[in-house]
Design a protein around this nucleic acid. Sequence first.
DNA 1: CAGTCTTTTCAGTAATTATTGAAATTATAC
DNA 2: GTATAATTTCAATAATTACTGAAAAGACTG
Lengths: 183, 183
Amino acid sequence: MKTTAYQQAFILHFGEMGSRWGINRTIGQIYALLYISPRPLNAEQITEALGISRSNTSMAMKELSAWQLVRVQHLPDDRRDYFTAPDDVWEIFRTLVAERRRREIEPTASMLRGALVAPPEQGDDAHAARKLAEMLELIELVTGWLDDVSDMDQRTATQLMKLGGGVQKLLGAGRRKKETPRA
Amino acid sequence: MKTTAYQQAFILHFGEMGSRWGINRTIGQIYALLYISPRPLNAEQITEALGISRSNTSMAMKELSAWQLVRVQHLPDDRRDYFTAPDDVWEIFRTLVAERRRREIEPTASMLRGALVAPPEQGDDAHAARKLAEMLELIELVTGWLDDVSDMDQRTATQLMKLGGGVQKLLGAGRRKKETPRA
DNA sequence: CAGTCTTTTCAGTAATTATTGAAATTATAC
DNA sequence: GTATAATTTCAATAATTACTGAAAAGACTG
């Protein structure tokens, strides 16, 4: 596997952004490589294309599998694992949202629910409990909404997003704060 | 500043989640502390409450300010800086979305735009360019939508989110994939 | 089941990120 | 101006996370 300069730029960018996205450089690069690759790649090809160790590739693939961001497939008369990223960006997006929700939000929601089972009623703890309740309410509102959007097919979701602020008209309210028409 | 066991649990959780959220433990803890505190706190109080160094507090406040997640205020006859988190969770949420967008998505969108100025038209690079274009299209759709939602007032946004999948009826489409009614 | 190919594990090391303490800077008071 | 309080900077160190190489484990072949 050799990569062109054009591909390199994209792969290196994903590597650099990796740390901001909570994944490491290797994982970012591998995902970028798979995403633009027109064919499935095996671990050896990935290792060679990125100049990393075989074991690093193995660990990264495990992590990407845990995120459900890659698929494994096999070719006839070849027992190596071949990896692909899903073709459809919308599907990738849904997976990302679901996984980030599970890892970054759900543990907190769960902790908040626990803390609110028997909320203190006096003093600063009571104030804290009210703030926790506000946070949980917002989390549940937003995650519920994300679930709903994830269940939509791409066409509907696209239509909804393009509607943008115009959705307020449909809601029948004159509460618009700022006019932001979209295509 | 002393914290109760009830407050501690929340603060420690935010510290632990910090690494998943792309901030460090100290920043997570400080934000949790400020969020539930019924009054503004100065750096010394934060330092004492969390058992960290004064310089660590200073650097963390700088970072939180960069995220626009805290406000500084002053008390009469006291020249120390007092910090608060915004009262309104909705406002905090909007800030988080805006900042994450700016740091985690915008650089990539910008790179993609650059790569698509003169997209290659042959071979694997052409395939890569098509995938880049798909990614950019999705990013622009989603970030545009986030902008629109951010511009809504809380009441409208809440109404919209509670509507959930029901929004499809308003769109006049029978393309519902799965029925998920919400309060 | 011995041999070969492939993948995984993991201890050690490298690289990165977080935290501290001391010194420097800034701001205010006298 | 000097003294004092508050905050920031930054080099050193601690802690964490990423990566490698070697060895082990697993999977298939003949």
